[in-house]
Simulated scan of single mutants.
Amino acid sequence: MNPFRTLAAIVALTFGLLSLPVHAHSNPSGDPMYTADAPPGYAMMGDLLIARPLLIAATVIGTGVFLVSLPFTLLGGNVAEAGQALVVEPGKAAFVRCLGCTESGYKRD
């Protein structure tokens, strides 16, 4: 079999299998907040093994980019916006978000 076709088949099967839990997930209580308060196990595992390391790497790279761009952002007067976008938002998503949740930050009533 052609290597390109093999790779295409593997990618198609992977994405197909990854989408199955999304379609199969049911919310027995009917409460839309149920999925946010208690994410399923596969979401927690994917978050722990894939998303968190990528977000931590994005925070480190964003910090480096922020430091390199600091002289230009000082001249432009948008240091706060650059820091928020490059460092705070990825850091907040990596360290403040609950495991498996899609929204960052603590819930405050």
Rank of each mutant, 00 (worst) to 15 (best):
T6V: 11
T6F: 10
A9N: 05
A12Y: 01
L13M: 14
L13D: 05
T14C: 09
F15Y: 15
G16W: 11
G16P: 04
L17S: 01
L18N: 10
L18A: 11
S19A: 11
S19W: 10
H23Y: 10
N27P: 00
N27G: 11
S29T: 15
G30L: 02
G30W: 00
P32T: 10
P32E: 06
Y34H: 12
T35W: 11
D37W: 10
P39V: 04
P40Q: 13
A43E: 07
A43R: 09
M44I: 14
M44F: 01
M45I: 15
G46L: 09
D47S: 06
L48C: 07
L49H: 03
A57Q: 04
A58N: 09
G62H: 03
G62S: 07
G62Q: 06
T63R: 04
S69I: 13
L70E: 01
P71I: 02
P71D: 02
T73P: 00
T73G: 00
L75D: 13
L75V: 15
A82N: 03
A82E: 04
G83V: 15
G83P: 10
A85S: 15
V87S: 03
E89M: 12
E89K: 10
G91P: 00
G91L: 06
L99N: 06
G100F: 04
G100M: 05
T102R: 08
T102L: 07
K107V: 15
K107G: 08
D109R: 08
